[in-house]
Structures are given as structure tokens and as C-alpha cells.
Design a protein around this nucleic acid. Structure first.
Length: 110
RNA sequence: UAAGCUGACUAGGCAGUCGCUGUGAUGUGUUUAUCAUAGAGGAAAGUCCGGGCUCCAUAGGAUGCAGUGCCAGAUAACGUCUGGGCGGUUAAAGCUGACGGAAAGUGCCACAGAAAAUAUACCGCCUAUGCACAUAGUAUAGGUAAGGGUGAAAUGGUGUGGUAAGAGCGCACCGCACUUGUGGCAACAUAGGUGGCAUGGCAAACCCCACUGGGAGCAAGACCAAAUAGAGGCUGAUGUUUCUUUUAAACAACCUGUGAUCCGCAGGCAGCCGGGUAGGUCGCUUGAGGUGUAUGGAGACAUACAUCCCAGAUGAAUGACUGUCCAUGACAGAACCCGGCUUAUCGGUCAGCUUACCAA
């Protein structure tokens, strides 16, 4: 599901549960729901061309959809950093997989 | 067949699985399931023009400012498009144009050159007179602008007559100006006559002439709900008259709006600082709409009839994976909507035209 409301975003940021890599910044906060909700931020300042911005957003959403069973019960916000735009598609895929693995190790196993 | 030019179209296809957004239907009953269906571009981009739409209680006049600038037409409108004229360019098809005015005025024209615009005379050419035996030379006075040299540009060009040497001084042709006729809606073209050369270039220098332009933009704007708050600070709220006074009214001034200035018009509290918010619904997609046929037109386009409904998000929907085929997929993502222009772009298809070669 998509994270839509402004107040939800603020709640996630205020939870201060974050993970930083070279390509992404991920915030997490628990919600009292049965599903996982995701918001992707790809700002115009980081990724200039609209096509690339859309591409990154879709990739993120797709990867989280695949893993949505493990991630349920939490709200997630992914911020894409400007380095990501210069990578090709294959590299972006690899980085996303790596990110998901890191998330699993850090939070879900606890 | 090859090379080139012009115009139009297209922008990986097919099958399967999972998912996203809108709409409709059904169920459940209050926000979710299931099914069906639709879902980015030729430039969606740059925001460079024009228009619709909305608001600013009006848009009226003068000046200014900005834009446009051969002619005719198309259009809602345009700086766009079509056709034509003229200039430039190409072997041709074609391409291309800041294409009104320099005898209204002001200004500028580096270097070189005598002289860059009131003209003038450096080297020259020629005549007369003096010096000199004389040619030559030199000095003075005068006549010239043919030749040389400079420059991006030199005061009509070429030829011929003419002359002391020369000169539109005369003549022929070309150019130019004026004028008359013819063709054309017009730009303009063309034929005749007259003049005897006047008007160097730059208007992408100011300027003049003609025409056009009120401003701001969908975060426009309308409604609903909540919250601060009809809160705080600062600035200006004047004078005269009427009235016993307050209030109120009139006139002048002042302030605000009419985003350049003045007049005019409207209003009487207005402006600034600082703080907070921007949640929902509408606007929001049926439109100068698309497609087809017919008619009119040289064309841009117009008219009539038939038919179709074709994105509408808002922390922002089009994706991922698998198989397969080929040429191995460029530039690139709607955000109120249209008409253009400009820029980016791997390719592919079709039509017309030109030239060259070959064959008949």
C-alpha cells in the first residue's frame, strides 16, 4: 500500500529508526495494521530528469511488493540519493536487493 | 539503380503471470473485496508567442513603454500557416529573408586615403605668363577629375563623339528619378515619354510612420471544515463648514485600488512587520475534440452529414518477471486546456519531385 498522508510521513520520520547506505536512506516505524505501507521519495534536486525519477520510484515499489509479507506491520519511507541516478538498471536492481537484505539483518531478525 | 530535396506516418511486436490509478457493476455494510474496462508524447520538454477559462468592482483619455513591419488570404488569435511579389543561393528539385521610411531631423562611418559627405585635389593632365637660346625644368595664375594610389564603400556604368586637357558637355545602350498607359484586389511587373544625375552606407544607432497590447495567473478561483484571532506592534488618520456636544454629512487635502506617469473613475480606513495554516470537495477534462465521406477553394482552411468518447493523478498511477521473434529499441513522463514556434532524438515506412546513368 502507498503511504499518502503528510502526518504519516511525519510519524515515520519522528520514530528515528533509520538505515543509511551509499544509495538509499530508509526510515521505519511500526503501524497497527496487518499490511506494510511504503512511501518513496525521489526529489527533483537529487534526480533531475523526470523519467529517471519515475524509473527509480517504480523499481523501489516493485522490490518492496515482492517482499511485502516479511515487511508487514510497519511503515517504510525510502529516500533515493543522487548517486543512484547515474547507475544502470542492473546495478540499481543489485543495490535494492542488498538493501532489503540489510533491512532483514538489522531489524526483522530481532 | 544511385544521389539529393520536400511532405506525411511510425516510435519494438506477440503470449503468459503478479501488481498500480481512475471509472462502472456486484457483494459486504462504511471502506474494503471480486469482475469488467480505460490508462503518457511527437516532442508530454523549453516557457518563446497567441487564445480560451478565472479573478482583480471597468479596461476611458493623454504621454510613455513593449511588440509587429513587402502584398493578399486563413484563423478564436498569433511573432503561426497558405499563396503571391522582390532580393539572395543551388546544376536542378528546392532552400532562404529584421523585406516600411535615409530629398522630417540628430548622429556614426576604425585603419588607410587628398577627400567618408557643407565636399575636395596628393601624385597627375592641360593652358597662359615670367625666368630660360630652346626642348626639358622651375615659379605664379587658371582649367580639369580621364589615369594612379587608399578603402568594406569614392559622387552613375560601358562605348563613342568632343576637347588645350577633360567633363552627361553631346549621343547610344544599361541604371536612376519623374510621368503616362497596360496587366494585377495588391505587393509588383511591363511598354512609351521626359529629365540629364540630383538621392554614398548604417534605422540589429536614436528616430519617424502604420498597426496591436489593462494586470495577474489553476498555488487562478469557488465552497465546506478546523484553528489562531475579529489578537499584538509600528506608520499615517489633517483642515474648514453645519450642529450645544458626540455621532453624522459636505468640501478640500490624505491614503488605497486601477502594478509606468498624469487626468479621470471607485473606495474610507489603509499599509507594513511578525506568527500560523495550505485538510477535503469542485475547478478537472465533451473539446476552436477525433475519424470517415461529400462539397467549395490553387492552398492554408471552411461547410454539411454520419460516427466515436479517447489519462485525470495530487508524498503524485503505465511497472516487474518469463518465453519468443527481429532491425536489439533513441530522445524522453501529462499536472487547467488548446493553436504554434524552438530544442533533443537510434531507427523504420510511404508518397511526390529533381539530376545522373542504363534499357526501350
Amino acid at each position: 500500500m502507498r503511504l499518502k498522508l503528510s502526518q504519516d510521513y511525519r510519524r515515520v520520520f519522528d520514530a528515528k529508526c533509520k538505515l543509511v547506505t551509499a544509495f538509499f536512506v530508509v526510515y521505519m516505524a511500526s503501524n497497527q495494521l496487518e499490511v506494510a505501507r511504503l512511501g518513496v521519495i525521489a526529489s527533483k534536486r537529487c534526480i533531475r530528469l523526470a523519467t529517471k525519477r519515475n524509473q527509480v520510484r517504480r523499481l523501489c515499489r516493485e522490490h518492496f511488493r515482492v517482499c511485502s509479507q516479511q515487511l508487514r506491520g510497519y511503515d517504510w519511507v525510502i529516500i533515493a540519493r543522487s548517486v543512484l541516478a547515474n547507475q544502470n538498471k542492473l546495478e540499481q536492481h543489485r543495490q535494492l536487493k542488498k538493501l532489503l537484505y540489510l533491512i532483514e539483518v538489522k531489524w526483522l531478525n530481532q
